[in-house]
Amino acid sequence: MPITRSQLRASVFTTTAKATSPSSKEITSKYFSSKTNVNETKQPNKSSLNETVTRKTTRKHIIIETEESSANINLSGALSSERSVDKLEKRLEKEPSKPPVGWEGVYNTIKEYRKNIVAPVDTMGCERLADEPSDDITLQTSRFQTLVSLMLSSQTKDHVTAAAIQNLRQKLPGGLNLDNVLQAEEKFLDDCISKVGFHRRKATYLKQTAKICKEEYNSDIPNTVEGLMKLPGVGPKMAYLCMQVAWKQNEGIGVDVHVHRITNRLGWCKTGKAGPEATRQSLESWLPRSLWQEINPMLVGFGQTICSPQYPKCSKCPVNNMCPSVTYNR
């Protein structure tokens, strides 16, 4: 089921607060970017009553890094995004969103194109990294591996995530499962995943998540979007993808930066400034539910190979004659 506005606020503002608080020095250097420039000029005689002090201060916005965003979001930007989501929700409540004109033709063309193009997500995507259940791998372990893959994938390229999962699988005594993560030292986990983005924070999240799953979910992972999003470092995209892959339940669309970017470029959504959560709500208001699961890997791979963030390969794009954002003269 779709998450509420309060849960969205929590995913934007409190994701990092769920982890064990690092030192104040680390917070300053890694979590925040704040700069104050001070220029002072004083008269040589400090005792003079006419002493003049000129102080010029320039303060930049404090920037918070979040696991679910591909870029840094400042506080005012986050509030603006939340307001945009609120407006979108109210509008969708009053009148159902109409599907964009011609979307099916564009969708089917991209889908057909992707059948012949192998992208990193097709072989190394986080939904493909867990071991299949077998005599040696329980269903619970397979689901836990899927969750770990998703947690490590944030702001990390697929091949780096795949290598980190392989490191954990090979270096953890007994392999990658919940109990072995619990028993391992956090520094050891950090060494295994050192190439992924925000690896120190994610090592902390892994330990905390394993403990929560052990104590509150009988050594399994949560089986609801709400439960998954209560885990440290897990946002909406991860929760919906985890439900689809680990629990085989289609609760919503997993919208990452690729899906967010491409659907706005195609004119399917007008949520560029509002963010991925607004894009998810917009898409779910008109896209058939049967397509909710396949749209993520389809568009992620399309973004990895053709519709990249910078310098998209419009001349090679199969829908360049239907895309309103094409960057070359037709």
Score class of each variant (00 low, 15 high):
Ile3Cys: 11
Gln7Ile: 11
Leu8Glu: 12
Phe13Asn: 05
Thr14Ile: 00
Lys18Ser: 10
Ser24His: 02
Thr36Val: 13
Asn37Ile: 03
Asn39Ile: 12
Lys42Tyr: 13
Gln43Arg: 12
Asn45Lys: 13
Lys46Phe: 14
Val53Tyr: 10
Lys56Ala: 10
Arg59Val: 13
Gly77Trp: 00
Leu79Met: 13
Ser81His: 01
Asp86Ile: 14
Asp86Tyr: 08
Leu88Cys: 07
Lys90Gly: 02
Arg91Leu: 08
Arg91Trp: 00
Glu93Phe: 02
Glu93Pro: 00
Pro96Leu: 09
Pro96Cys: 07
Ser97Cys: 09
Lys98Gln: 13
Pro100Arg: 02
Pro100Lys: 01
Val106Ser: 10
Thr109Cys: 14
Thr109Pro: 07
Ile110Gln: 05
Arg114Ile: 00
Glu127Arg: 11
Arg128Pro: 06
Ala130Asn: 11
Asp131Leu: 11
Asp131Thr: 05
Ser134Cys: 14
Ile137Trp: 12
Gln140Ile: 01
Ser154Met: 03
Lys157Trp: 04
Asp158Asn: 11
His159Pro: 08
Asn167Phe: 04
Gly175Lys: 13
Leu178Cys: 12
Leu178Trp: 05
Gln183Ile: 03
Gln183Asn: 15
Ala184Trp: 04
Glu185Phe: 01
Glu185Thr: 04
Lys187Asp: 15
Phe188Asn: 09
Asp191Val: 02
Cys192Thr: 04
Ser194Asp: 10
Phe198Ala: 14
Arg200Gln: 12
Arg200Asn: 15
Lys202Leu: 10
Ala203Asp: 02
Leu206Gly: 10
Gln208Ile: 14
Ala210Phe: 11
Lys211Pro: 05
Lys211Cys: 05
Lys211Tyr: 09
Cys213Leu: 02
Glu215Tyr: 05
Glu215Pro: 07
Glu216Phe: 03
Asp220Pro: 04
Asp220Ser: 14
Asn223Glu: 09
Thr224Glu: 03
Glu226Phe: 06
Met229Cys: 15
Met229Gln: 12
Pro232Met: 07
Gly235Ala: 15
Tyr240Cys: 13
Asp256Met: 07
His260Pro: 12
Thr263Cys: 15
Thr263Met: 03
Gly267Trp: 00
Thr271Gly: 07
Pro276Gln: 06
Gln281Arg: 14
Arg289Glu: 10
Ser290Thr: 09
Trp292Asp: 08
Gln293Phe: 04
Glu294Ser: 11
Glu294Arg: 04
Pro297Ile: 08
Gln304Met: 03
Thr305Trp: 00
Thr305Leu: 06
Pro312Glu: 03
Lys313Phe: 05
Cys317Val: 01
Pro318Met: 04
Met322Gln: 14
